[in-house]
């Protein structure tokens, strides 16, 4: 304990000790939530790389700031951090789109290469798999098109299975607001996905 004689040294020694002591539990916890977190971020952003960045940020923040909390608290905390990161992404994207619109340029990152849209005739795609993938893609696009708060309420309630109180806690708003956002999200999705066999 090189810096153990100072308050700061003691603080860091204790914090590091907590992280190391909880490392196995943290590893298990993160392994249990990472896939769902990744899918939620991917649906929200539409980008695998952005989703991985968001999940990494959320994991890092949880480990850095809340490793000393009891494992029972990690779930809600992780959800709060993850949703906060997704909202940050939406904000940055909005600002960037406004900036691009002001400059009169098209967003080159989101431009689709025409070659990518050409069907691969040699590819083997079982019919059922196609149906499933297409259905999920349509669903994802519909969720992605929702306003950020509705999207957040929908993902937490419908996909993550949180109740109204837990969702309100993560979204930092009232339970009434959660109900409103969720109801609107479900209504829009019903309308858009009506013709698909979800």
């Amino acid at each position: 304990m090189r810096t153990g004689y100072t308050f700061i040294g003691f603080y860091h020694y204790r914090k590091r000790g907590n992280i190391l002591a909880n490392q196995k539990e943290l590893d298990q916890f993160l392994a249990s939530v990472e896939r769902r977190a990744y899918r939620m971020a991917e649906i929200a952003t539409g980008s695998a790389d952005d989703a991985l960045d968001i999940v990494q940020d959320a994991m890092y923040k949880l480990v850095q700031k809340y490793a000393i909390k009891s494992p029972a608290e990690w779930g809600p905390l992780f959800q709060t951090i993850l949703q906060s990161r997704i909202m940050d992404y939406h904000r940055r994207n909005t600002v960037r789109n406004k900036y691009m619109a002001w400059l009169g340029r098209k967003d080159e990152e989101n431009m689709v290469d025409p070659l990518e849209t050409v069907a691969d005739e040699k590819a083997v795609n079982p019919e059922s798999e196609v149906d499933q993938v297409t259905c999920m893609q349509v669903l994802e696009r519909a969720v992605r098109d929702l306003p950020p708060r509705q999207q957040q309420a929908f993902m937490l309630r419908a996909l993550e299975g949180l109740d109204v109180a837990q969702t309100a806690s993560v979204m930092k708003c009232s339970q009434g607001s959660v109900k409103t956002h969720y109801f609107r999200a479900i209504s829009v999705l019903r309308e858009r996905l009506g013709d698909y066999k979800i």
Binding site: H12, K15, L20, V55, Y60
Partner: peptide
């Protein structure tokens, strides 16, 4: 995802000091 998780846990232990 596994690589990310391992990186996060390794870095957190180091930077906490």
């Amino acid at each position: 995802l596994t690589t990310l998780r391992n990186q996060v846990l390794d870095n957190a232990g180091e930077s906490a000091s």
